[in-house]
Computed example of a mutant assay.
Amino acid sequence: MLKEVARDESSGHRRYDPATVERVEALACLRSSGMTVGGMRRYLDLLAEGDAAAAEQRDLFAAQADKLATDIAQLQLRLTYLRRKADLWDARVRGDTDAEKQGVDDVARVMDQCTLKDSTR
């Protein structure tokens, strides 16, 4: 996805020009957002088309933003599950049976949400 990178003649180290550095940073950001290699290639192809591909660029980024939002929601649910489980075990450690019963109920509610999300896929 990078064009040929120049090398220093004496050391052989790669020398990145500012445009290449910018491209690497953009691709790294896209990759960390969960975009596939195919999606990144599509982005670069559309970028080469300039303003004529603006609507397709918008759609590509909007779709990736939607996917990332879904991923974040799933991670938030998993985080809630882990915290409720920790609360449940903390109650057990303290010998607080009322809090433990509440913890069991809280975990069950989170599990129900996980099951609902899994069944809508």
Rank of each mutant, 00 (worst) to 15 (best):
L44R: 01
T36Q: 07
R83I: 04
S32M: 07
A99I: 06
M35N: 02
S10G: 02
A48F: 03
P18D: 07
Q74W: 14
G95Y: 06
V5I: 09
R31K: 15
Q57T: 10
Y43K: 04
A65S: 12
A65N: 11
M1K: 13
R121C: 05
D118K: 15
R23F: 02
M111Y: 11
D118I: 13
S11P: 01
R7M: 08
Q113P: 03
A26E: 09
A63P: 08
S11Y: 01
S33W: 14
D106T: 01
L79V: 09
I72V: 13
S32E: 12
M1I: 13
V104C: 05
S32P: 06
T97A: 15
Q76G: 14
A19T: 00
R23I: 06
G39K: 04
L75A: 02
T20F: 01
T20N: 00
L47P: 00
D66T: 10
R31P: 00
S119F: 12
E56Q: 14
D112R: 08
K67A: 13
R78A: 11
R41Y: 11
T120F: 07
Y81R: 14
V37M: 14
V21R: 06
T115Q: 09
K3A: 14
D51P: 01
T115Y: 07
M35F: 09
R121D: 05
L77S: 02
A53M: 06
L2S: 07
A62R: 13
L47V: 01
A6G: 06
R15L: 12
R23P: 02
M35I: 08
R121A: 11
D112W: 09
F61P: 01
V107E: 02
R31S: 12
D106F: 04
I72R: 09
G50A: 05
Q74M: 12
D8I: 03
A54Y: 00
W89M: 09
K101E: 13
G50N: 05
L46W: 01
L82S: 12
W89F: 13
L60K: 01
D106G: 12
V93K: 10
L47K: 00
R7A: 10
D96R: 04
D118T: 15
E100P: 00
R14F: 11
I72S: 02
Q74S: 12
R7I: 02
R31L: 08
E9Q: 08
P18C: 05
L47T: 04
V110N: 11
T97K: 13
A19D: 08
E49I: 00
R58Y: 03
L2V: 01
F61I: 08
L44C: 03
K85Y: 05
A73F: 05
E25G: 06
D45R: 13
D8N: 12
R41G: 09
C114L: 11
R58A: 07
G50H: 02
L79C: 10
W89K: 09
R84N: 13
W89L: 14
G12V: 03
R121F: 12
L2N: 03
E4M: 07
R109K: 15
G39I: 00
L75T: 00
Y16P: 01
